[in-house]
Design a protein around this nucleic acid. Structure first.
Lengths: 347, 347
DNA sequence: CTGAAAGCGCTTACAG
DNA sequence: CTGAAAGCGCTTACAG
């Protein structure tokens, strides 16, 4: 995998490559104004190409810092991951720098982020749900910065370790469980499109139905993007169907809570009139009323594993299995009720 | 307030203070084994006393790092603060190191944390809900590290800026609102004891009742510690009362959700049979079913303000008002219903 | 176990 | 705008 034992790039190697003196490079590095624009440009390019990293004095003196990068910091999701990463890294004597990629997609902001990363001499980075495109990947390589991705957006390069959960299997289990409880019309609220795990959950739902010989009704599959509002909208649409579902499987807990509210507004009670199952098992799932049955994915465990994997890369070790999926499991609480028998023979 | 412009403590000043050579101090600093125990001890003490901070080369070269410290990273609370801090600091080109004080209270772990802080040359620290005791305060002063505290546990030293919310006023407002809706028997679930804001909320509840000429019934005040389980327990106890409350004001949203579940388990519907109001306005409040009416405290705004205040201290500026309380406000959603008129004249 | 010496990576006046 | 020189804070062989 990555290798961090290359000869260090120093200010003086940059200087000779650029054909200028060491002080000049130093000036560029420190944003002094008294440098000819052409010189500055040339030096900056070289700095970038060589992947120069500020280094205190003589020997590297590791910063003991790892970057944990989210697209946005607006989900309860994030704390779980942060907690797992922080615990594992703290045990290794490392600290976690948490950041969100602001104005996502802007090449400029990515550039700026990379510069900061480089300036502070981070030992490695954990990217969450990030689309590690080839540009970003190349830049990180250049910085000799080990990387681990949690829940990659697309299928990442093979030499970048990724940590995920058994999304497909978890979704199959959720669907099977509802079928066991005699549900046949099972609605599905999908996750944010474009992220790998969303697709896996949708496929698992379909596979679960088909394994039980139930045809997939496209009407019962509704788009979403993981958050509450999209769950509410999807729930409303699904419950407005002529032949409405008796159970809804939402690809995230937040969307499941949106379904709760859509049901409540239509006077439907959970689990009596509608069964709901979520995905994630955020603490919030246990706080719902009634407590939400869901598929647990070990988010903080994923964080811990990502951290441990990264530490190995930092130490120059290789990682034998670059893609790991931690297992999910069904957590039964009170939002699913068996259909049929009860209906026919009420107590 | 704090001053950061003191002459830098260098390895050589420590060396002469200790009566040893520079290389020896360097060895202690790097944990080399070949140093006499007595010498090591003496040097370490001096290092501490002088508040030595590793510094790359010649000039300080600010690390651009700020520490954000929680007691625990297990609450949805935390993300809100992190988000606010991260945004404000990112705008200043600074990064956020997030950590939890593990094994709280252990002097040893505090020591270790301070060492890390010092080693990485953090520019400042934001402590959340921390009891900044005089020991910690003195140590941070020694490191010349500016500090801001969010929601201080106790009453902190006057020269440490603190950021909070108008907890007392918010609680008065919540209580007044319930009274306006004709509630008279209003239960209260208190926050974690020992934290300043818990006390303010309890006092606000009492003041709100008394202002309306309602006597405070001690039976209606129940202990809690901010989390879901304690809210559930308190809700259960309150609803089991002979003359049970028609409304419950919980000092946190998480506890309010616990009250929801306690009500549901007793077959009580919200808001029809019981009105509930929370405190915080976490995203979770909006996801409850029915959506929770609550007192909003601007958590991410508190994070932002703490960050900005810290940046000023880092720049050596003074802060004119060391204790700021951001205002809270009532967010009306669907968990409170007026009592009385409706009951007498149903639609 | 310790210090004198050499050296490293970098920066800052100082000339030009 | 740029480089030669001096210097800073630190570390690492090298002696003893």
């Amino acid at each position: 995998m990555q290798d961090n034992r290359e000869p260090a790039v120093t200010i003086s190697s940059i200087a000779s490559a650029a054909g200028v003196s060491v002080p000049t490079v130093s000036r560029v590095l420190n944003g002094r104004s008294d440098v000819a624009p052409a010189t500055r440009e040339r030096v900056e390019t070289l700095l970038r190409e060589y992947g120069y990293r500020r280094r205190g004095s003589a020997q590297a003196a590791p910063a003991g810092l790892v970057d944990l990068v989210f697209n946005d910091l607006d989900s309860p999701w994030a704390v779980e991951i942060i907690r797992g990463v922080e615990e594992a890294l703290n045990a290794e004597g490392l600290s976690v720098v948490v950041s969100a990629i602001h104005r996502r997609g802007s090449a400029d902001s990515t550039r700026k982020w990379l510069d900061t990363l480089s300036a502070r001499a981070s030992d490695g980075a954990i990217l969450v749900t990030t689309d590690l495109d080839s540009f970003l990947h190349a830049e990180l390589q250049r910085l000799h910065l080990p990387v681990v991705v949690i829940d990659p957006a697309g299928v990442p390069d093979l030499d970048v370790p990724t940590i995920g959960a058994t999304n497909w299997t978890g979704a199959v289990n959720a669907t099977e469980y509802l079928i066991q409880q005699n549900h046949r019309r099972i609605g599905f609220v999908a996750g944010r499109p474009g992220i790998w795990c969303s697709r896996a959950r949708l496929d698992g739902y379909r596979a679960g139905l088909e394994a039980a010989g139930i045809a997939v009704d496209p009407e019962l599959v509704h788009g979403g993007d993981f958050d509450y509002a999209s769950g509410f909208d999807a729930g409303r649409a699904l419950l407005a169907l002529h032949d409405r579902p008796t159970a809804i499987f939402a690809a995230s807990d937040q969307m499941a809570l949106g379904v709760y509210e859509a049901a409540r507004q239509q006077g439907l009670r959970i689990p009596d009139d509608l069964s709901v199952i979520g995905f994630d098992d955020l603490p919030e799932a246990g706080w719902a009323s009634p407590p939400l049955t869901t598929i647990r994915q070990p988010l903080s465990g994923m964080g811990t594993l990502a951290a441990r994997t990264l530490v190995r890369l930092i130490h120059g070790e290789t990682v034998e299995s670059p893609r790991v999926e931690l297992s999910t499991r069904l957590v039964r609480r009170s939002s699913v009720q068996a259909l049929g028998p009860q209906d026919r023979f009420p107590a």
